[in-house]
Amino acid sequence: MSALLEIRHLKVQIAQQTICTDLNIAVQPGQCWAVLGVNGAGKTTLLHTLAGLRPAQSGEILIQQRPLTAYSRRELAQQLGMLFQEIQDPFPSTVLETTLMGRHPYTKSWQWETAEDYRIASEALTHVGMHHLTERQINTLSGGERQRLAVATLLTQTPRLFLLDEPTNHLDLQYQHLILKLFNQYAEAHGCAVVMILHDINLAATYCDQAVLLFRDKEPECGPSEELLTEPHLSELYSYQIRKIAGPDNRSIFVAL
């Protein structure tokens, strides 16, 4: 199986801060990666670099064996989709209109959305529990509903690689698990991969099999979650004492002391 996303010797800097100088990662289909780190460690910058929204200082990013820079924006949008942190809507629009924007990479300038586009969009809205809100104005939605709408738009885009910047933002407990489970199952069923920034270690441990830890002053570490999500690693990462305790069903729970 070939990697969906391969990062070779990646160097990323923002302002005067170096986020990584030699990052090497291969994201395989079906995998779910967590990106963890303190505020300002460069999690979003790294994700934006992977999405081709800002240039890397050096190194290579390959999407399905092909350099990221060789893709046109439109081709890239068919392979790679990103969920952003802040969601703005200066102009009115309805939930369904917004969701259908996810089909943009597949429709030409003078083309209208097809019945198939509608089917994909309404399926995505059903997945996030918003199918009853299709006609609603987006500025009447709550924060959590907006976040779920953004997830539905991303699912409508049907990329193979999902980059999620804090997907659990604004979501209540039920939807945090529902949305992450959704991405897990979707990745497995469609041979997709997910890379997501999370702040909750327990969510990362539950839903992500791989992890990247971004430290503020040293090179990132990456590898399988069970090797990286340990007391010493995490305590160092967050500069805060973190304990791993036994929970129900053979699961461990991380607690900040």
């Binding site: 949008a77 952003f84 703005q88 102009f91 924007m101 943009h104 003078w110 083309q111």
Partner: peptide
């Protein structure tokens, strides 16, 4: 009219537009 569909997305956010395939 040729750019109308892209304008729908550009009106929301530049990053979203970029990630949906608009230069």
């Amino acid at each position: 009219g040729y750019y109308a569909k892209s304008l729908n997305i550009l009106a929301r956010s530049e990053l979203t537009a970029e990630s949906l395939g608009i230069a």
